[in-house]
């Protein structure tokens, strides 16, 4: 294995594009070095980009925040303004692993690793987060929802990588929340999960809503109908029933040692309901 710290994003893209063998990017290493150790993936080339400009920065942009692809979970958790604007995104990131893992793990790594259970992904999706992607042909912006394509897979082309993720601006009367189910209290992989992001008008009526679920399909799913079910409501029982029905209908999970199809489907609906109530209260709504 070769370890390279390229001098620029362009040089990194060229290097990754021209590599004939297996190439990986080293962000926090909390997936890629586990795979290396387990001999699941033995890269020929490991590219470290953490030193490049902006990779470790959280900067305000157009009323939102641009988070560098090498920013760790711990750094996001310590950023009060980011947490105030996107509490659901930050709580998702902060659920990843232990204190030690938090010091290193990144949102971009969690996204690119392509786990259906990645804890930062559902809330990034409901936030409408957009990844900035550098490749051999230049830079493009890709909605986060379009990056994962299946377990361990993503839509980035050879030579492409994420340099930052934009969490866009939002009104004050808006918020989000993320919940996962695990049988323990810490250090486990989600059996199912849900994120909800809401915007309210001055009367507390939902004007826009996005719902995403994790670990219930090959990728994190944005459930459009579930968001639609909440719009125009103050989360009354009928709206919540519509949300739960839409979530359950969208679930397409597997049965494994962590949970059955039935259990995952049921809990995803319950988590979506609870996350909706938390997001609503955070947005200042009073039911």
């Amino acid at each position: 294995m070769r370890y390279v710290k390229p001098q620029s994003f362009e040089a990194a893209a060229t290097l990754l594009h021209e590599e004939a063998g297996i190439a990986r990017i080293l962000a926090g290493g909390t997936d890629v070095l586990v795979q290396l150790k387990a001999e699941m993936v033995e890269p020929d080339l490991m590219v470290d980009l953490k030193h490049l400009p902006g990779m470790r920065e959280i900067v305000a942009e157009d009323g939102g925040f641009r988070v560098g692809a090498a920013v760790s979970g711990a750094e996001m958790g310590e950023h009060a303004a980011l947490k105030a604007m996107w509490p659901g995104v930050v709580e998702g990131v902060e659920l990843i692993g232990s204190s030690q893992v938090q010091s290193r793990a990144t949102m971009a790594g969690n996204l690119c690793t392509g786990s259906p259970a990645g804890d930062s992904v559902p809330a990034m999706v409901t936030a409408g987060a957009v990844a900035r992607v550098q490749g051999p042909d230049g830079v493009r912006d890709v909605p986060v929802v379009d990056i994962p394509t299946g377990p361990g897979k993503n839509s980035l082309a050879k030579g492409e990588f994420i340099t930052s993720i934009l969490l866009p601006a939002r009104p004050d009367t808006a918020s989000d929340a993320y919940l996962r189910f695990i049988p323990r209290t810490e250090m486990d992989i989600a059996v199912s999960s849900a994120a909800v992001s809401l915007e309210l008008d001055s009367d507390g009526v939902v004007t826009a809503a996005h719902v995403a679920v994790g670990a219930v399909a090959p990728t994190v799913l944005l459930v459009q109908d579930a968001g639609v079910a909440l719009v125009g409501s103050k989360l009354d029982d009928a709206a919540i029933a519509g949300l739960v029905a839409a979530v359950e209908a969208a679930c397409n999970p597997i049965t494994d040692k962590r949970g059955t199809i039935e259990f995952r489907t049921k809990t995803a609906g319950v988590l979506a309901k609870r996350a909706a109530h938390i997001a609503y209260a955070r947005a200042g709504g009073q039911a």
Binding site: G29, T30, L33, V34, K37, A38, S72, Q100, R104
Partner: peptide, 24 residues
């Protein structure tokens, strides 16, 4: 463990606690 699960390898790297088994 060598895979980030047990913390027996914890060290500080630039002021933050990390699993040294998951750092090159």
């Amino acid at each position: 463990c060598g895979t980030g699960d047990c913390g027996a390898c914890s060290v500080m790297l630039n002021g933050r606690v990390v699993c040294s088994c998951l750092v090159l």
